[in-house]
Design a protein around this nucleic acid. Structure first.
Length: 156
DNA sequence: GCCAACGTTGGC
DNA sequence: GCCAACGTTGGC
């Protein structure tokens, strides 16, 4: 089983939205970066753990945990002319963008903020989120870092 | 295939 | 709103 971090702007889709969603599951639409897509398309497996990260908000940080809940399939928004994620270069025959569904697992009692994570940079050595200039919205996380985040959330 | 210009991400 | 970092585009 692998672990991932997936970023979302809470204005757009937050951990609370996932709680309220039908079957507590959502399609992770709108990723338009090839590297992020490739992780979803080629490497994610059902049941993989996902750190749900809130970005571009008052307190950026990890808000909870989700699980990969589907195999990859085409992102419908790429075909929707009215969507901000519409991609005129994509076709139904050869869709460019793939996504997975993500299911709610757990909301943290408190957001483990980016600031707090930075304060624990020693234990989190190598955690991609803390790398300089990291902008990727989907990337793999080592189990040790995943576990460390859970420990931090519990105040250990 | 290089690389300058431009666009986007995302923290601050 | 600023801007560093980095991805993408397009001319050559």
């Amino acid at each position: 089983m692998a672990y991932w971090l997936m970023k979302s702007e809470p204005d757009e889709s937050s951990i609370d939205d996932l709680v309220k969603a039908k079957k507590q599951t959502t399609a992770w639409f709108g990723v338009r970066n090839y590297q992020a897509r490739n992780y979803m398309r080629d490497q994610m497996r059902l049941g993989d753990g996902v750190l749900f990260y809130h970005s571009s908000c008052e307190v950026p940080g990890i808000a909870g945990i989700a699980k990969v809940a589907s195999k990859p399939y085409p992102d419908a928004s790429q075909f929707d002319r009215k969507s901000e994620y519409y991609d005129p270069k994509s076709t139904r025959e050869e869709p460019r963008w793939q996504l997975v569904d993500v299911a709610f697992d757990k909301k943290f009692d408190r957001v483990v903020s980016l600031e707090e994570l930075k304060q624990h940079a020693d234990e989190l050595e190598g955690f991609t989120l803390l790398n300089r200039g990291n902008r990727l919205s989907v990337f793999p996380v080592d189990k040790k870092h995943y576990d460390q985040v859970l420990k931090l959330e519990k105040g250990k």
